[in-house]
Amino acid sequence: MRITQGTFSFLPDLTPAQVTAQVQYALDQGWAVSVEHTDDPHPRNTFWEMWGPPMFDLRDAAGVVGEIEACKAASPEHYVRVNAFDSSRGWESVRLSFIVQRPAQEKGFRLDRTEGEGRTQRYALRHRAGA
Rank of each mutant, 00 (worst) to 15 (best):
80 V>T: 09
108 G>Y: 07
123 Y>W: 15
12 P>L: 00
122 R>F: 15
87 S>M: 10
69 E>G: 07
17 A>F: 04
39 D>N: 10
10 F>L: 08
94 V>G: 09
2 R>D: 09
111 L>V: 12
91 W>P: 00
58 L>N: 00
71 C>M: 06
77 E>L: 08
68 I>W: 00
31 W>I: 07
40 D>T: 11
67 E>P: 12
53 P>A: 11
84 A>I: 06
39 D>C: 07
91 W>V: 13
34 S>H: 00
5 Q>G: 11
53 P>V: 03
52 G>M: 07
127 H>C: 06
36 E>W: 06
107 K>W: 09
56 F>L: 13
84 A>H: 12
111 L>T: 15
56 F>W: 14
61 A>F: 04
24 Q>W: 04
109 F>D: 04
94 V>K: 08
96 L>K: 09
50 M>I: 00
95 R>N: 09
69 E>C: 01
17 A>I: 01
46 T>G: 14
14 L>G: 10
107 K>C: 13
105 Q>R: 11
103 P>Q: 09
38 T>R: 01
15 T>K: 06
40 D>Q: 11
103 P>K: 10
131 A>M: 11
75 S>K: 10
110 R>S: 13
4 T>M: 14
36 E>P: 01
6 G>I: 02
101 Q>R: 10
21 A>G: 12
76 P>A: 09
103 P>C: 14
114 T>Q: 14
61 A>E: 05
42 H>M: 04
126 R>S: 15
81 R>I: 08
102 R>M: 05
54 P>K: 02
111 L>P: 03
71 C>G: 07
30 G>E: 05
46 T>S: 13
11 L>G: 04
40 D>S: 08
47 F>M: 11
44 R>W: 13
60 D>W: 01
51 W>I: 00
38 T>M: 04
3 I>P: 00
50 M>F: 09
10 F>C: 06
32 A>S: 11
102 R>P: 10
107 K>Q: 12
51 W>H: 10
81 R>H: 08
121 Q>K: 12
122 R>K: 13
5 Q>V: 13
97 S>N: 09
110 R>Y: 05
46 T>E: 14
67 E>M: 10
98 F>I: 05
56 F>E: 12
45 N>K: 07
38 T>C: 04
